[in-house]
């Protein structure tokens, strides 16, 4: 108990202090306000100042990052919005906070439901950003957003309706490129398989009919 422990500990803090200046000097201007600098500051070998100068520079969020959900729509060549959501209601059934409200469209003529939402509400004061809705949506229609700068002065803004929830598929492809590609791949494969199955079925049907015809012909003879 002669104070050597404290001195040794102070040595550690002193080393950190010196490291800061040495590192700043060594890396120069590339350390701040550059992509490279941010990547360095979040890597395992970082030394010295660690701070991200938000808002001048922002820590990029990873692809899987999730904040409040949004709905994906596709743009037809005519410029129309085609909403992917078919209002199947799985997201409302899996949402732990029960923050999703979907109103299904009914056909005015037949009175039967149509596969598109008439209205869609998400209360982000309830949402727990868990991402289960996006995970279990069978149509890749609801996805988690990357925008986190949502602070408001008025809480009534925090209920998002259909118009405010919609975002184009190009935006989705931009924030989650890997996921998007994987899903497109799967979709293509599924369509391929469907097409093949249909073809095979058509073939089988043709073959059956041919066989039938043959049989009938044979009977006639």
């Amino acid at each position: 108990m002669d104070g050597s422990g404290i001195l040794k500990g102070l040595g550690v803090t002193l080393k950190r202090l010196i490291d800061t200046y040495v590192d700043d000097f060594k890396r120069g201007k590339s350390r701040y306000y550059t992509q490279e600098g941010i990547e360095y500051r979040r890597s395992a070998e970082v030394k010295g100042i660690f701070t991200v100068q938000y808002p001048e520079e922002k820590l990029p969020v990873p692809e899987e990052f999730r904040f409040v959900p949004f709905l994906v729509y596709e743009e037809t060549p005519e410029g129309e919005q085609k909403i992917r959501c078919t209002s199947c209601g799985i997201c409302t059934k899996v949402c732990p906070a029960q923050c999703i409200w979907i109103e299904r469209t009914t056909d005015p003529k037949t009175g039967r439901p149509r596969p598109e939402p008439a209205d869609f509400h998400i209360d982000i004061d309830l949402c727990m950003n868990c991402g289960l809705c996006a995970e279990y949506c069978p149509f890749d229609a609801i996805k988690m957003d990357h925008v986190y700068e949502l602070a408001t002065y008025d809480r009534s803004n925090n209920v998002l309706d259909l118009q405010r929830l919609l975002k184009p598929v190009s935006y989705y492809a931009e924030i989650r490129p890997n996921n998007y590609q994987r899903e497109e791949e799967a979709r293509r494969k599924a369509e391929e398989a469907k097409r093949k199955a249909a073809e095979a079925r058509a073939k089988a049907k043709a073959a059956r009919e041919a066989a039938k015809a043959k049989k009938q012909e044979a009977k006639k003879e």
Binding site: S87, G89, K93, W101, I102, E103
Partner: peptide, 11 residues
């Protein structure tokens, strides 16, 4: 899940 959320989910 609550019934009020779907299919007639009035917020």
């Amino acid at each position: 899940p609550y019934k009020s959320r779907f299919p007639n989910g009035e917020f």
